[in-house]
Nucleic acid binder design. Structure first.
Lengths: 151, 151
DNA sequence: TATGAAACAATGGCCAG
DNA sequence: CTGGCCATTGTTTCATA
């Protein structure tokens, strides 16, 4: 599963435009279209590329409020239980177990402040959640492609 | 810029597979391929869809360490200055100004713990940064499509 | 919004290095 | 084993209604 330089350049190109044709990518990296396709197929099989997604502006869809919530659990809290306590809330777009004071960190998006408040109340009703600490996002300064650095 | 139900279903389809053909999307939503294309073109013009990106597994590229850093500045720290202090670090994949104790929250990815440590030291040398508080990601529980909820 | 035509892209087979 | 080329099939994209 070792990637050579050509693979990395193909991935970089697909991070910028997942709908680029194989011929376009080939022009950029110096390969023919079928050669690019074979590499992309291989990268998908190996799990380096897991899919292709549209990049959508949540604000344009009416989701204008974003927050990070540190979660503190009481007692036992395996990753599975943590997962169970947040997966049902569709506002949660990412969740992590972390080192440090908090047990978990979740990233959520809501339509507005009222919706955020409603979501927080709903989260706090989860039995194992003892405490939450909310940081509302004021501005997004950086948001790189697929959350993956320059390959 | 109002989206109807057809638009939302097209966006949902493209979030799952940005390389789906217009004909495939048309089959799924009950439209002809050209009709789908014109809607997608319009959604891009309106900024609802800002691009298409490959979804890459950072671990497969050798980026196995992930962390969130709360940043505390001393004195003046406009969003622009905050941006300037983090943009040059390629390990930073997202950065936000937030409410709460910290002034900013950054999300970063490194190849390993040594690389994370090196990045933290580099960040702490930024003149305006007074203090940092790091939470290393132990496991990712949820990571929804484009960081955008169900449209 | 659908249809049809022309241009373009994807993809499998096959051969060369 | 990896890339190039060719031919087939499918897709995009325009004109037109």
């Amino acid at each position: 599963m070792r990637l050579d330089d050509l693979d990395r350049r193909i991935v970089a190109r697909l991070l910028e435009d997942a709908r680029a044709s194989y011929a376009q990518i080939g022009d950029a990296v110096g390969l023919s279209a079928p050669a690019v396709k074979r590499r992309v197929d291989r990268l998908r099989e190996e799990g380096v590329i897991t899919g292709f997604a549209a990049v959508v502006d949540p604000a344009a869809l009416g989701w204008t409020t974003e927050a990070f919530i540190e979660i503190f659990y009481n007692g036992a809290r395996s990753p599975e239980e943590t997962y169970e306590s947040v997966r049902r809330h569709p506002e949660v777009i990412a969740a992590y177990t972390v080192t440090g004071e908090a047990d978990a960190l979740i990233h959520l998006r809501a339509r507005d402040i009222a919706h955020l408040e409603e979501t927080l109340e709903r989260l706090r009703r989860e039995p194992k959640i003892a405490q939450t600490k909310t940081s509302i996002v004021l501005s997004r300064l950086i948001g790189r492609p697929t959350d993956g650095p320059d390959t």
